[in-house]
Structures are given as structure tokens and as C-alpha cells.
Write a protein that binds this DNA or RNA. Structure first.
Lengths: 149, 149
DNA sequence: TTCATTTATATCGCTTGCGATGCAAATTAA
DNA sequence: TTAATTTGCATCGCAAGCGATATAAATGAA
């Protein structure tokens, strides 16, 4: 890290941008998942919605949004596509007619089995040690926490 | 990190996904830049193109794409919008008529001065130590390197 | 030279992502 | 109870991203 010691650290150089590294890592990660998700017939953001629903379904749109930091203007069309693919059902809540509850269909539930090995595959292909990955995740979580304030 | 020690580490849990953390950090980072970029009248991906061009302009579309890991199908419309805003000029290369060289206009060059303090502002608002940030960046660069192979 | 291949960029269609806005149901205040 | 406000979701419009495909210029092979 000569850049740190050197007096000519250039803040506007691309290679010094943490933000760009995160941005690039995110897009490359999505690409890296794609072949595996293609097999399941889903996209990466849809995969994230599944991760939420596999833990607990019958939740409102906004509850999914809170967990993924996504607004309804992104989620509504995304969820409609997932419904079109019959992975989920969108059902109006009886107690509160404003709410739309999201339920997994059998097809959606079954997908969990097919997805089971994806994290392992990722770790393998990225030659990624679990401890190190969780450490990196922790650093990023701290950054996220600062940005949410 | 009890998850690491515990036998019930659930690979499909959202909170255990490094990929999601990177994805979330990327989007939140873009949001975090937005007020600053709004002042300049540019978007975040456009800012990245500027970072490339401020270092060296008169480059081909593909050279920008290599540095940002973006393809021409993303860059062409993006660069056309930047030209519409008269930040850049797209000029056919004489020696090789296939190439389109991207040049900054004066307006585009002047923007560098206005952007000068953005990295510093970011570090400040994120309460981010330079050494730690570069360390995190280094970790992510290693991950990126694995995904590019 | 002529035709096939490669290279550089562009076009098309689709899915995010999100600001601005709309709308109906629920809640609160008066 | 009635009106104002809040809440939850949807719609619209635009800018990325990107796979698939197209096109024209350059290069290479015959």
C-alpha cells in the first residue's frame, strides 16, 4: 500500500475508490451466481427474495423490503414476475386490506432444495474460507450500518 | 460470530450471505453518493466514467469498459446521455473507423474541480479511516480477482 | 483480390433500482 | 362522526446492466 504512505495519494483515482470496488464486486458476484440461478429459472434479486421467504413466508411487501433495503416500487413488479412464474402467491390481507401478503407456492418451496448447495458451490469456486468471508461480511455490515443512519 | 462455531450454520440464511452484504453495500453506497452527484448533475455510473476520463481521455469505449467491467451495451447509451449533457464528445477514430473515442468537453473537465472534495466528504460522513478503507478494498479486490478468472 | 473471420460499437428486449406521485385503507384528531 | 394524516402498495418514467444479436470496419487466409 504505497499509496497510503505516499504524499501523492490521488483521491479521485479509480484505483483508490472503495466505492467502485464494492460496485464492481456486486456486479461480478451477480454474474458469478447467474449460471446457478439460471438452472433454477430465477434472477439474483429474485434469489434474495427467496432467501427471505424460505425463512418465513406470508409476510408483507414492506417486510421483505426492510430486509433487502428495497422499496415497493422495486418489489411490486419483481414480485408480480415471481407470481407469473408461479413461485409465489400475492394475497390481500383480511385484517388490513392495504397489505399484500406473499406466500410461497409448492414450486417456490421446492426450489429451496435445488438451491441448497449454491452457497457451498460459491465458496468452492471462489476458493473462499468461511471465516474470512464472514470477517469481510462483518466489515461491510459496519459500513452498511453507517450508511443507514 | 457464534454462527461460525455453531453446528447449525445455515448457508441459505440471508444474514449469512456475503453476496447480499456486497449487493446491499453497493446500492447504499450509490444512494450515499447521490446528493453530492446531484449537485454535479450526474449519476453514479457516470461518475465512474468521469473517474476514468479525468485520468486519461480520448480513449475507446472498450477501454472504459475494461476498467469498469462494463460492456458496450451498457456504455453506449450511458455515453450518449453524457454527450447529450455536453460533458463529453464521441468522435470516430480516423485510423480505425470502428472505434469511437471519448473526449471530455471543457464542461466535463471543469467538473473535476467540483468533484475534488467528494472522496474526502465520503470518508468524513462515513467516519472512515483511510487505512481501514484501503484494507477492506484490498480484500474485495482479491475477491474480484477470483471472479474474473 | 475475394471471402471469411475478427474486432469495435450499437441495437433490442428484458429486469432491476429508484424518485416522484397516486390511491385506497387504516388511523388519528377534532 | 367527520376530516386530516399516515400507512402500504402500486404506477410512471427514466437510467442502468446485460444477454442476444446486428452491423460495419479491419484483418487474415485462400
Amino acid at each position: 500500500m504505497d499509496n497510503l504512505a505516499s504524499k501523492e495519494f490521488e483521491p479521485l483515482k479509480l484505483e483508490n475508490q472503495l466505492c467502485f470496488t464494492i460496485y464492481a464486486a456486486s456486479r461480478l458476484m451477480t454474474r458469478h451466481y447467474q449460471p446457478y440461478l439460471d438452472e433454477l429459472g430465477i434472477t439474483y434479486p429474485q434469489y434474495l427474495v427467496f432467501l427471505v421467504l424460505w425463512e418465513k413466508d406470508g409476510v408483507g411487501v414492506n417486510e421483505i423490503g426492510c430486509k433487502l433495503y428495497l422499496n415497493t416500487n422495486t418489489l411490486t413488479p419483481l414480485l408480480k414476475r415471481m407470481e407469473q412464474l408461479s413461485f409465489i402467491k400475492r394475497i390481500k390481507c383480511c385484517e388490513d386490506e392495504r397489505k399484500v401478503l406473499i406466500f410461497l407456492t409448492d414450486k417456490g418451496k421446492d426450489l429451496k432444495l435445488k438451491a441448497k448447495n449454491i452457497p457451498e458451490e460459491m465458496a468452492k469456486t471462489l476458493n473462499c474460507n468461511l471465516g474470512k468471508a464472514m470477517c469481510l461480511k462483518n466489515e461491510l455490515d459496519q459500513l452498511i450500518h453507517k450508511m443507514l443512519k
